[in-house]
Amino acid sequence: SPRLALTPEQFISRIMEAEPPQIYLMEELKKPFTESSMMMSLTNLADKELVLMISWAKKIPGFMELSLSDQIHLLKCCWLEILMLGLMWRSVDHPGKLIFSPDFKLNRDEGQCVEGIMEIFDMLLAATSRFRELKLQREEYVCLKAMILLNSNLCNTTPQTAEEVESRAKLLRLLDSVIDALVWAISKLGLSSQQQTLRLGHLTMLLSHIRHVSNKGMDHLSTMKRKNVVLVYDLLLEMLDANTSSSS
């Protein structure tokens, strides 16, 4: 089947429209935080964001044409990366702060109350300052997010059945469309072609840092759950278990 009939410009406007609405924690924050109160707020917000992330993914052109098992595997594999990239985007103009939501902003040092989270906060802040340095554009941000989703499970399994082979071919074509869209977004910045190529490289290299901090975050959340520091339930529990079961 021909590649998506969308031009890069049309593709970008479609994924810009797919952007989830800004959500709020909508909780009375009792400060100073305790380890469990901070983890409770972080997981409550994450659970709400996951619901919005799934409806976001369904609006990515071509995602619903993939096999249902591919859709599930992709989302299971990248959900924390997607949440973290959204956090970085919201925090990009607030050096030293993590804007989890407009009513839930944390300074780096507030993470001290949760064992093991400072290392993750520092990685998130470092990646965010890199995006600030690069002056990441919203069009580039939405392309990177779609790339994370579509790229997440590409190298975890080899397709066996004919359906899996067909779905993987669709996935690769979809990934081409997202890369074309990112290249198009970069071409609008008035850079030389060599600078455009370098920028594409720098942006995609950041994806490996996002995967790394997501893996650290997944381990940390599993530890917090195992130690009963926080009760993880519902969709967040499903997505966490999906990762811990596959990794263990």
Binding site: V51, I54, S55, K58, K59, L68, Q71, I72, L75, K76, D234, L235, E238, M239, A242
Partner: peptide
């Protein structure tokens, strides 16, 4: 993946 499956397969609003 009950909740994930349910959210994936519900028709968009």
């Amino acid at each position: 993946h009950t909740k994930l499956l349910q959210l994936l397969t519900t028709k968009p609003e």
